[in-house]
Design a binder for these strands. Structure first.
Length: 103
DNA sequence: GGCCTGACTTTAG
DNA sequence: GCTAAAGCCAGGC
């Protein structure tokens, strides 16, 4: 395969539509490495494709914002997602409604 | 090639 | 609900 794991992760992340989110685990599984959720996080922080890759639409397995290296940090990330239409249940995202389901 | 780090997840206490 | 520990894997030095 020509594509590295890294490229695959970014490709998947780019597919997340506004108003929806995906978990690190989800991206990891979809990219072929179910155990590489951590690496996915590392790629997000080292995201060289901003703003093409919406790394803010990737959250923890429970819909919780685990981190954000962008401007404003997690706080801003939350507001940004809300603005896009993502439904929050307190401090976490309501995955039942807003989790992205790739076809 | 080896060691350390980390935007994760899960299980156990 | 929280902290601790282990499993996993790519990137950087």
């Amino acid at each position: 395969m020509g594509k590295s794991f890294r490229e695959t992760v970014y490709e998947l992340t780019k597919l997340i539509p506004p108003g929806y989110v995906a978990t690190y685990k989800q991206i990891a599984v979809k990219s072929g490495k179910p155990k590489a959720a951590r690496v996915v996080g590392l790629f997000m922080k080292s995201n060289p494709y901003i703003p093409q890759v919406p790394c803010h639409r990737v959250v923890g397995s429970d819909g919780q914002l685990t981190g954000y290296s962008g401007q404003g940090g997690k706080k801003k990330k939350e507001q940004l997602l809300k603005k896009e239409g993502v439904v929050f249940s307190g401090k976490k995202i309501n995955l039942t409604i807003s989790q992205w389901k790739p076809l």
